[in-house]
Protein backbone atom coordinates (compact mmCIF):
# COMPACT_ATOMS: atom_id res chain seq x y z
CA UNK A 1 0.00 0.00 0.00
CA UNK A 2 1.48 3.31 -1.00
CA UNK A 3 0.12 6.07 1.18
CA UNK A 4 1.66 8.70 -1.02
CA UNK A 5 -0.33 7.58 -4.04
CA UNK A 6 -3.60 7.31 -2.11
CA UNK A 7 -3.22 10.77 -0.62
CA UNK A 8 -2.42 12.45 -3.91
CA UNK A 9 -5.57 10.84 -5.37
CA UNK A 10 -7.61 12.01 -2.35
CA UNK A 11 -6.29 15.54 -2.67
CA UNK A 12 -7.15 15.66 -6.39
CA UNK A 13 -10.64 14.36 -5.65
CA UNK A 14 -11.32 16.88 -2.89
CA UNK A 15 -10.08 19.78 -5.01
CA UNK A 16 -12.11 18.80 -8.04
CA UNK A 17 -15.28 18.72 -5.95
CA UNK A 18 -14.49 21.75 -3.83
CA UNK A 19 -18.04 23.10 -3.56
CA UNK A 20 -19.46 19.71 -2.67
CA UNK A 21 -16.69 19.15 -0.16
CA UNK A 22 -17.48 22.46 1.53
CA UNK A 23 -21.17 21.54 1.65
CA UNK A 24 -20.31 18.23 3.28
CA UNK A 25 -18.04 19.90 5.83
CA UNK A 26 -20.64 22.49 6.80
CA UNK A 27 -23.45 19.94 7.10
CA UNK A 28 -21.36 17.56 9.15
CA UNK A 29 -20.16 20.42 11.36
CA UNK A 30 -23.67 21.72 12.10
CA UNK A 31 -25.16 18.24 12.47
CA UNK A 32 -22.47 17.03 14.83
CA UNK A 33 -22.52 20.28 16.84
CA UNK A 34 -26.28 19.90 17.39
CA UNK A 35 -25.86 16.26 18.30
CA UNK A 36 -23.15 17.29 20.76
CA UNK A 37 -25.30 20.06 22.27
CA UNK A 38 -28.13 17.56 22.72
CA UNK A 39 -25.78 15.19 24.49
CA UNK A 40 -24.41 17.99 26.67
CA UNK A 41 -27.92 19.04 27.74
CA UNK A 42 -28.69 15.41 28.41
CA UNK A 43 -25.70 14.94 30.66
CA UNK A 44 -26.46 18.23 32.41
CA UNK A 45 -30.03 17.16 33.11
CA UNK A 46 -29.08 13.75 34.43
CA UNK A 47 -26.36 15.09 36.71
CA UNK A 48 -28.75 17.77 37.99
CA UNK A 49 -31.52 15.25 38.54
CA UNK A 50 -29.12 13.14 40.57
CA UNK A 51 -28.13 16.18 42.60
CA UNK A 52 -31.62 17.52 43.29
CA UNK A 53 -33.63 14.35 43.81
CA UNK A 54 -31.90 13.80 47.17
CA UNK A 55 -32.75 17.31 48.31
CA UNK A 56 -36.38 17.44 47.24
CA UNK A 57 -38.89 17.86 50.05
CA UNK A 58 -42.59 18.42 50.50
CA UNK A 59 -43.32 21.79 52.07
CA UNK A 60 -46.45 21.57 54.21
CA UNK A 61 -47.53 25.14 54.94
CA UNK A 62 -49.69 25.77 57.98
CA UNK A 63 -52.48 28.27 58.36
CA UNK A 64 -51.56 31.60 59.87
CA UNK A 65 -53.85 34.35 61.16
CA UNK A 66 -56.37 35.54 58.53
CA UNK A 67 -54.95 33.18 55.96
CA UNK A 68 -56.51 33.40 52.47
CA UNK A 69 -56.18 29.72 51.60
CA UNK A 70 -59.65 28.12 51.41
CA UNK A 71 -58.53 25.34 53.77
CA UNK A 72 -57.86 27.96 56.45
CA UNK A 73 -61.07 29.96 56.12
CA UNK A 74 -62.55 30.97 59.48
CA UNK A 75 -60.18 28.72 61.37
CA UNK A 76 -57.72 29.90 63.98
CA UNK A 77 -54.06 28.95 63.61
CA UNK A 78 -53.06 25.69 65.25
CA UNK A 79 -51.93 25.69 68.81
CA UNK A 80 -48.54 24.31 69.71
CA UNK A 81 -50.12 21.05 70.93
CA UNK A 82 -52.01 20.67 67.64
CA UNK A 83 -48.80 21.30 65.71
CA UNK A 84 -46.99 18.66 67.71
CA UNK A 85 -49.87 16.21 67.06
CA UNK A 86 -49.80 16.98 63.32
CA UNK A 87 -46.04 16.49 63.24
CA UNK A 88 -46.53 13.15 65.00
CA UNK A 89 -49.18 12.12 62.44
CA UNK A 90 -46.91 12.95 59.54
CA UNK A 91 -43.94 11.33 61.19
CA UNK A 92 -45.85 8.09 61.63
CA UNK A 93 -46.53 7.71 57.90
CA UNK A 94 -44.44 4.85 56.51
CA UNK A 95 -43.23 6.86 53.49
CA UNK A 96 -41.82 9.69 55.55
CA UNK A 97 -38.20 9.73 56.50
CA UNK A 98 -37.96 12.93 58.54
CA UNK A 99 -40.07 15.94 59.43
CA UNK A 100 -38.62 19.33 60.37
CA UNK A 101 -40.57 22.30 61.63
CA UNK A 102 -39.77 25.72 60.19
CA UNK A 103 -41.16 28.61 62.22
CA UNK A 104 -41.77 32.13 60.94
CA UNK A 105 -38.34 33.46 61.92
CA UNK A 106 -36.54 30.63 60.18
CA UNK A 107 -38.74 31.07 57.13
CA UNK A 108 -37.83 34.76 57.10
CA UNK A 109 -34.10 33.95 57.33
CA UNK A 110 -34.35 31.52 54.39
CA UNK A 111 -36.38 34.02 52.43
CA UNK A 112 -33.78 36.70 53.07
CA UNK A 113 -31.00 34.40 51.91
CA UNK A 114 -32.88 33.69 48.70
CA UNK A 115 -33.92 37.23 47.86
CA UNK A 116 -30.79 39.16 48.77
CA UNK A 117 -31.72 42.83 49.01
CA UNK A 118 -34.79 42.97 46.86
CA UNK A 119 -37.69 45.37 47.25
CA UNK A 120 -39.91 42.46 48.23
CA UNK A 121 -37.72 41.87 51.29
CA UNK A 122 -38.32 45.35 52.63
CA UNK A 123 -42.11 44.93 52.79
CA UNK A 124 -42.22 41.35 54.06
CA UNK A 125 -42.25 40.82 57.82
CA UNK A 126 -41.62 37.48 59.57
CA UNK A 127 -45.31 37.47 60.51
CA UNK A 128 -46.34 37.42 56.84
CA UNK A 129 -44.70 34.07 56.26
CA UNK A 130 -46.27 30.73 57.02
CA UNK A 131 -44.90 28.16 59.35
CA UNK A 132 -44.27 24.87 57.64
CA UNK A 133 -43.20 21.29 58.01
CA UNK A 134 -40.39 20.22 55.73
CA UNK A 135 -41.15 16.59 54.94
CA UNK A 136 -38.35 14.45 53.59
CA UNK A 137 -39.59 11.31 51.87
CA UNK A 138 -37.93 7.93 51.66
CA UNK A 139 -38.77 7.79 47.98
CA UNK A 140 -39.56 11.12 46.25
CA UNK A 141 -41.75 9.30 43.71
CA UNK A 142 -44.41 8.74 46.39
CA UNK A 143 -44.89 12.47 46.95
CA UNK A 144 -48.42 12.62 45.51
CA UNK A 145 -49.84 9.94 47.79
CA UNK A 146 -48.27 11.47 50.89
CA UNK A 147 -49.35 15.01 50.08
CA UNK A 148 -52.93 13.86 49.45
CA UNK A 149 -53.17 12.28 52.89
CA UNK A 150 -51.62 15.32 54.61
CA UNK A 151 -53.85 17.75 52.71
CA UNK A 152 -56.93 16.54 54.61
CA UNK A 153 -55.50 17.46 58.04
CA UNK A 154 -56.83 20.52 59.83
CA UNK A 155 -54.61 23.56 59.85
CA UNK A 156 -52.77 22.65 56.63
CA UNK A 157 -52.92 25.57 54.18
CA UNK A 158 -51.26 24.02 51.14
CA UNK A 159 -48.50 21.63 50.12
CA UNK A 160 -45.78 22.37 47.62
CA UNK A 161 -43.91 19.51 46.04
CA UNK A 162 -40.52 20.95 45.11
CA UNK A 163 -40.16 18.15 42.60
CA UNK A 164 -42.88 19.70 40.47
CA UNK A 165 -40.98 22.96 40.26
CA UNK A 166 -37.88 21.11 39.15
CA UNK A 167 -39.83 18.99 36.70
CA UNK A 168 -41.05 22.06 34.85
CA UNK A 169 -37.50 23.21 34.51
CA UNK A 170 -36.19 19.80 33.48
CA UNK A 171 -39.07 19.48 31.04
CA UNK A 172 -37.92 22.66 29.34
CA UNK A 173 -34.37 21.35 29.10
CA UNK A 174 -35.60 18.03 27.72
CA UNK A 175 -37.56 19.84 25.02
CA UNK A 176 -34.46 21.81 24.12
CA UNK A 177 -32.47 18.57 23.93
CA UNK A 178 -35.08 16.84 21.77
CA UNK A 179 -35.11 19.78 19.40
CA UNK A 180 -31.32 19.74 19.08
CA UNK A 181 -31.31 15.99 18.51
CA UNK A 182 -34.17 16.19 16.00
CA UNK A 183 -32.38 18.81 13.90
CA UNK A 184 -29.15 16.83 14.29
CA UNK A 185 -30.82 13.75 12.80
CA UNK A 186 -32.05 15.82 9.84
CA UNK A 187 -28.55 17.22 9.34
CA UNK A 188 -27.03 13.75 9.49
CA UNK A 189 -29.53 12.62 6.87
CA UNK A 190 -28.62 15.59 4.65
CA UNK A 191 -24.92 14.92 5.20
CA UNK A 192 -25.36 11.29 4.15
CA UNK A 193 -27.04 12.31 0.90
CA UNK A 194 -24.43 14.99 0.23
CA UNK A 195 -21.55 12.61 0.80
CA UNK A 196 -23.23 10.09 -1.47
CA UNK A 197 -23.51 12.71 -4.18
CA UNK A 198 -19.90 13.85 -3.73
CA UNK A 199 -18.62 10.32 -4.02
CA UNK A 200 -20.75 9.75 -7.10
CA UNK A 201 -19.33 12.86 -8.78
CA UNK A 202 -15.86 11.77 -7.79
CA UNK A 203 -16.39 8.31 -9.20
CA UNK A 204 -17.64 9.82 -12.44
CA UNK A 205 -14.70 12.23 -12.69
CA UNK A 206 -12.24 9.44 -12.19
CA UNK A 207 -13.91 6.69 -14.20
CA UNK A 208 -10.92 6.48 -16.58
CA UNK A 209 -8.47 5.96 -13.74
CA UNK A 210 -10.64 3.44 -11.93
CA UNK A 211 -11.29 1.58 -15.18
CA UNK A 212 -7.57 1.18 -15.76
CA UNK A 213 -6.96 0.30 -12.13
CA UNK A 214 -9.52 -2.47 -12.43
CA UNK A 215 -7.93 -3.69 -15.64
CA UNK A 216 -4.40 -3.93 -14.32
CA UNK A 217 -5.61 -5.73 -11.22
CA UNK A 218 -5.57 -3.11 -8.48
CA UNK A 219 -7.28 -4.57 -5.43
CA UNK A 220 -10.70 -3.27 -4.49
CA UNK A 221 -9.40 -1.53 -1.43
CA UNK A 222 -6.85 0.35 -3.52
CA UNK A 223 -9.58 1.51 -5.87
CA UNK A 224 -12.09 2.40 -3.18
CA UNK A 225 -9.83 3.84 -0.53
CA UNK A 226 -9.30 7.26 -2.16
CA UNK A 227 -13.07 7.76 -2.35
CA UNK A 228 -13.67 6.64 1.21
CA UNK A 229 -10.76 8.79 2.41
CA UNK A 230 -12.34 11.81 0.73
CA UNK A 231 -15.44 11.21 2.83
CA UNK A 232 -13.41 10.62 5.97
CA UNK A 233 -11.34 13.77 5.56
CA UNK A 234 -14.40 15.91 4.86
CA UNK A 235 -16.06 14.30 7.88
CA UNK A 236 -13.03 14.93 10.09
CA UNK A 237 -12.77 18.59 9.09
CA UNK A 238 -16.50 18.93 9.78
CA UNK A 239 -15.91 17.24 13.13
CA UNK A 240 -13.19 19.73 14.02
CA UNK A 241 -15.55 22.64 13.27
CA UNK A 242 -18.22 20.92 15.35
CA UNK A 243 -15.72 20.59 18.21
CA UNK A 244 -15.00 24.32 18.03
CA UNK A 245 -18.74 25.06 18.07
CA UNK A 246 -19.22 22.79 21.08
CA UNK A 247 -16.40 24.45 23.02
CA UNK A 248 -17.86 27.87 22.23
CA UNK A 249 -21.29 26.64 23.38
CA UNK A 250 -19.84 25.34 26.63
CA UNK A 251 -17.99 28.58 27.34
CA UNK A 252 -20.71 31.02 26.33
CA UNK A 253 -23.93 29.16 27.09
CA UNK A 254 -23.38 26.51 29.73
CA UNK A 255 -20.98 28.57 31.84
CA UNK A 256 -23.31 31.56 31.52
CA UNK A 257 -26.21 29.68 33.12
CA UNK A 258 -24.05 27.65 35.46
CA UNK A 259 -25.14 29.62 38.54
CA UNK A 260 -28.69 28.29 38.09
CA UNK A 261 -27.54 24.75 37.41
CA UNK A 262 -25.82 23.98 40.73
CA UNK A 263 -23.87 21.21 38.94
CA UNK A 264 -21.47 22.63 36.34
CA UNK A 265 -20.85 20.85 33.04
CA UNK A 266 -17.27 19.55 33.26
CA UNK A 267 -14.64 19.69 30.53
CA UNK A 268 -14.45 15.90 30.79
CA UNK A 269 -18.02 15.64 29.57
CA UNK A 270 -17.31 18.10 26.76
CA UNK A 271 -14.25 16.09 25.69
CA UNK A 272 -16.29 12.89 25.74
CA UNK A 273 -19.06 14.49 23.69
CA UNK A 274 -16.56 15.83 21.14
CA UNK A 275 -14.90 12.44 20.75
CA UNK A 276 -18.25 10.76 20.34
CA UNK A 277 -19.59 13.24 17.76
CA UNK A 278 -16.37 13.03 15.75
CA UNK A 279 -16.54 9.25 15.71
CA UNK A 280 -20.19 9.42 14.63
CA UNK A 281 -19.32 11.92 11.88
CA UNK A 282 -16.51 9.79 10.49
CA UNK A 283 -18.52 6.55 10.68
CA UNK A 284 -21.40 8.20 8.82
CA UNK A 285 -18.99 9.44 6.13
CA UNK A 286 -17.39 6.03 5.71
CA UNK A 287 -20.75 4.26 5.51
CA UNK A 288 -22.20 6.76 3.04
CA UNK A 289 -19.09 6.50 0.86
CA UNK A 290 -19.11 2.72 0.85
CA UNK A 291 -22.79 2.42 0.06
CA UNK A 292 -22.50 4.86 -2.83
CA UNK A 293 -19.36 3.21 -4.13
CA UNK A 294 -21.11 -0.13 -4.32
CA UNK A 295 -23.63 1.46 -6.65
CA UNK A 296 -21.44 3.65 -8.81
CA UNK A 297 -18.07 1.96 -8.91
CA UNK A 298 -18.06 -1.53 -10.31
CA UNK A 299 -15.12 -3.49 -9.06
Amino acid sequence: MRANFIFSEVWIGLRRNLTMTIAVIVTVAVGMALLGIGLMINSQVSSMTGYWVDKVELSVFLCKKNDVFPACKDKPPLTDDQKAALKQTIQSMPEVERVDFEDQNQAYENFKAQQGNSLLLSVIQPGDLSESFRVKLKNPDNATAVSESIQGQTGVANIVNQRQILDTYFGFLSKLRNMALGVAILMVFAATLLIGNTVRLSAYNRRRETGIMRLVGASNIYIQLPFVMEGVIAGLIGGVFAAVLLIVTKVLLFEGIQSYMAVPLGWNTVAGVITFTMAVGVVICVLASFITLRRYLRV
Binding site: M1, R2, R208, G211, I212, L215, V216, A218, Y222
Partner: peptide, 26 residues
Protein backbone atom coordinates in the same frame (compact mmCIF):
# COMPACT_ATOMS: atom_id res chain seq x y z
CA UNK B 1 -5.00 -5.77 -21.91
CA UNK B 2 -4.80 -3.56 -24.99
CA UNK B 3 -7.81 -1.89 -26.61
CA UNK B 4 -8.73 -0.17 -29.84
CA UNK B 5 -9.13 3.16 -28.03
CA UNK B 6 -5.80 2.97 -26.10
CA UNK B 7 -7.36 4.08 -22.77
CA UNK B 8 -4.44 6.23 -21.66
CA UNK B 9 -4.71 8.84 -18.92
CA UNK B 10 -4.57 12.19 -20.73
CA UNK B 11 -3.08 14.10 -17.77
CA UNK B 12 -0.14 11.76 -17.32
CA UNK B 13 2.90 11.46 -19.57
CA UNK B 14 4.15 8.23 -21.15
CA UNK B 15 6.28 7.25 -18.18
CA UNK B 16 3.52 8.02 -15.66
CA UNK B 17 0.93 6.13 -17.68
CA UNK B 18 3.06 3.00 -17.65
CA UNK B 19 4.11 3.47 -14.02
CA UNK B 20 0.45 3.90 -12.99
CA UNK B 21 -0.20 0.21 -13.67
CA UNK B 22 2.49 -0.71 -11.15
CA UNK B 23 1.70 1.99 -8.60
CA UNK B 24 -1.89 0.87 -8.20
CA UNK B 25 -0.86 -2.70 -7.46
CA UNK B 26 1.50 -1.43 -4.80
Amino acid sequence: CVFQDFRLLPNKNVYENVAFALEVIG
